[in-house]
Simulated scan of single mutants.
Amino acid sequence: MGIYLDFNSSSPIDERVLTAMIDVYRNVAGNADSRTHNFGVSARQVVENARGEVASLLNVNKDEVFFTSGATESNNIVLQGLKEYSEKTGKKHIITTSIEHKAIIETCKAMEKLGFEVSYVNPKLDGRVAYEDVVSLVREDTLIVSIMHVNNETGIIQPVKEIGEFLADKEVYFHIDATQSFGKLVDELKQIKFDMLSMSAHKIGGPQGIGALILKKKRYKLPPVKGIMYGGQQEHGIRPGTIPVALVVGLGYACSLVANEYRENADKCQKIKEMLLAELDNSGISYRINGNQECCVPNTLNVCFDGVSSEALMLSTKQYCGISNGSACNSKSYEPSFVLSAMGIPVDQIENSVRISWGAEADFEEVRASFKELITVAKGLVF
């Protein structure tokens, strides 16, 4: 099968997290919302401990953390959950970018059908949206600005810190999709002024199927987000349904691990990136990097091999490594990446581009060996 190099789609679960979850499955039988017996109390205790671990990683309060099934659901709750507030205030303008995850873009399209106006900001060729292009669109009826922190295809860091500073004293809500930065850009996230934040556990060595929505209080009040499903008052009505205790514990424990290890993890990932770039330079193959590496996370590389079809390359290197040519939510589509298209990259270059993403646990020499094999295959596919 080769080595797994598609961490931006999903990272392998950390064995320590899995062990903690198995312990919960074996020993915590109760429903966390059952208040009439000790089994429910025990379940609630481990849930609240995990909530505290998530809150600590972001430097927010425990009562600002709401568990969901992941960032896609959190993103939907943020946008759809503000409909009632928008009706009361007349604020029906949304600002986002053209390179967001489909969980934002598709939800925005649905909101447009309900009478909302959405402004989509395009990035520059370097993969980064300009701060000025975003804030210049803010107006009296702007409801929310929703910007991803790190793009999932290119790894480019967006100017959310600057945007947050601008919006801090405005009557406009600011949402960050931190799916690719949560647990990685820890210090930066703690400094950003936001009202809402989405994340998923499976990007940081946690389990799939669990994530969180952060709703920060302002003047002691939560943002006026309402639940978009019916079925109970779990998570204060923001997200009804039985809390998956073991998954929540997995998320919380993953947060506690990266809280202690994120700097070391970043260093390991950066060394792998430097090695990959050196291998490219020494290979003699014609290539180009998509996105400005000066504002890129250390675990992602989006590279175009000139004259090499990305589909052919991925199929021909399956025995060496698992890579992709974009977001997993678009993997069944054969259309060019909408992210690279929005950056203004020519179609032929897009069709020759692949995304490589890794984690700190990836073996340095194994990555090197597999990447060399990939380059060798790419050379044979040049047309």
Results as ranks from 00 to 15, higher is better:
K268A: 15
K221L: 05
T142M: 12
S341Y: 12
E153Y: 13
K62F: 04
I243P: 03
V129W: 09
I99V: 12
V129Y: 05
S200G: 05
I289F: 06
I285V: 15
N302T: 14
K268G: 09
E373Q: 13
V297S: 02
S136T: 13
C321T: 13
E84G: 02
S74W: 05
L82I: 04
I285K: 02
N151V: 12
P123R: 02
Y25R: 12
E264T: 13
Q293I: 03
V47T: 13
S310L: 00
D281E: 14
V134D: 07
V339T: 01
L18F: 15
P159L: 04
A178P: 07
D195L: 02
L5I: 10
Q158F: 11
G2N: 03
S181E: 07
K91E: 09
I323Y: 07
F338M: 09
F182N: 08
R51K: 08
G237N: 01
D306N: 14
G232W: 12
G252N: 01
L251H: 09
E235L: 05
S333E: 12
H93S: 11
E15D: 14
I156N: 10
D348Q: 09
V186W: 00
P244N: 09
G252W: 06
V382F: 06
I105P: 06
F305V: 06
K91G: 09
V138F: 11
K271Y: 13
S11K: 08
A43K: 08
S333L: 08
F174R: 03
E112R: 00
K170Q: 10
G81D: 01
I13Q: 10
R239V: 12
D133I: 03
V129E: 04
E100S: 11
E165G: 05
S9A: 12
G115C: 04
K268S: 14
T19A: 13
L313R: 12
N75Q: 04
I285S: 05
H93T: 13
N151A: 00
E351T: 03
